[in-house]
Amino acid sequence: MGSNHGCSANEIFEGQIHLYKHLYAHVLDSMSLKWMIELGIPDIIHNHHQPITLPELASTLQIPLTKVRGVQSLLRYLAHCGFLQIVRIHHHTEEKEAYALTAASQLLLKGSDLSLAPMVELLTKPHAVHAWSQLKKWTYEDDLTLFDVSLGSNLWDFLGKNPENNKLFNESMASDSQMMNLALRGCNWVFEGVESIVDVGGGTGTTARAICDAFPNVKCTVFDRPQVVENLSGTNNLRYVGGDMFESIPKADAVLLKLILHDWNDNDGKKILENCKEAISDKGKRGRVILIETVINEGQDEHGLTGLKLAMDVRMTCLLNGKERSEEEWKKLFMDAGFQSYKIYPLTGYLSLIEIYP
């Protein structure tokens, strides 16, 4: 005979709903966003200058009549998830249903300075999606990442051998940096008294250029893998340097690490921070390392925010052998690398700004 394991029928049905919700959302959430971007729907609505009806959207996209119902189904799901808003408008003397953008879907506009469309494109690439189907094999492969298991190489080697994916990776990191730049506009005090700064893993220089614009007297160095910076041109107060952060880091008053340390385990993170400490060793009170990272605060953060941070920890751990860290874990890493003190400040909804001092 079957058993409910002490659960009532209603509890079993609730469990089924919970299971199916996550099972279906695993693929549908990300792929519906990919579909939305590939068809240019956010841009179509934006350029329409008002909410758009389903017939208007279908006409613009030249969708076959047989697919209109399917498109409506996807739009309704995206609206339920907060990426569209369903409104009522007057259209040729009739009241009709129409779709408007939300704050989330405005981040998918391809021409926007704050567009995160490249991030969606990167994380929905076939190689990125396929990797997660290898979790069981990953579990039993000592010290290998999901990318090692699914691609046969780590992420950095894969990007080095695939220029198109490397370009998209850099674009997605640049788009994420634009969000950080928005937050940093209110944190000018972080760079006061700093005459030189190195942005380690700074990519194409999105954040460094913003710092240069805000502080023309600050000398900025973008330090990244040689293949990332080799064709980039600097300015009077911005230069690009290729190298390996595990070997050494150019000297400066401050070293900036934006979402770098979460890519690495504690041993690698300690080595990076030791090199940062060496880079600022002769700068006295001006010397500091500035981190932009996640700080896991289970029990303190709102439930949904904690869920995002824990999901990011799963991604970093499985894909890169990295990790997101709690404050206690950050503190231990700083002390192990020879730093004496630190301060944590809120920055964005899920990121913190951390200053650490030698």
Rank of each mutant, 00 (worst) to 15 (best):
A104Y: 14
A25W: 12
D148N: 15
L123E: 06
T348D: 03
V200S: 04
E121D: 12
G70V: 01
M179P: 02
T221N: 04
S73Q: 12
T317D: 00
L273C: 08
C318E: 09
R225I: 07
L109Q: 06
M173R: 09
V289E: 02
V255S: 01
H127G: 00
W330I: 01
K270Q: 13
I344H: 03
E247C: 11
K258C: 02
A128R: 08
M179V: 11
L333S: 02
S248E: 12
T139S: 14
V229S: 05
L351D: 08
H26K: 14
K277Y: 05
F334C: 05
N165W: 09
C212F: 02
E95N: 11
L347R: 00
H90C: 09
A100R: 09
M36S: 06
G269T: 05
E302Q: 12
S3L: 01
A25N: 14
T66S: 14
I290R: 03
N297Q: 14
I292F: 02
L135P: 00
E355R: 01
V229N: 04
S112T: 03
I197Q: 02
A131T: 14
W189P: 00
G201W: 07
H303G: 02
R315K: 10
T221H: 03
E327R: 09
Y20C: 08
L109C: 09
L57C: 06
R69S: 12
T93H: 12
L101F: 10
V218R: 00
Q16V: 15
P216N: 01
V149E: 05
I211P: 01
P226C: 12
K258W: 01
Q134C: 13
P226M: 13
Q16R: 12
A208H: 06
R325G: 00
R185W: 04
F215V: 06
A254V: 10
S150V: 05
S59P: 01
T235E: 14
L184V: 02
V87N: 05
Y20H: 13
S196A: 04
V149T: 07
L33S: 02
T124G: 03
V190M: 09
N267F: 07
L155W: 09
D301G: 05
K309V: 03
D176M: 13
V87P: 00
G202A: 05
F339G: 04
L320H: 13
F223D: 07
S153A: 13
E328Q: 10
Q16F: 15
V218D: 04
G15S: 04
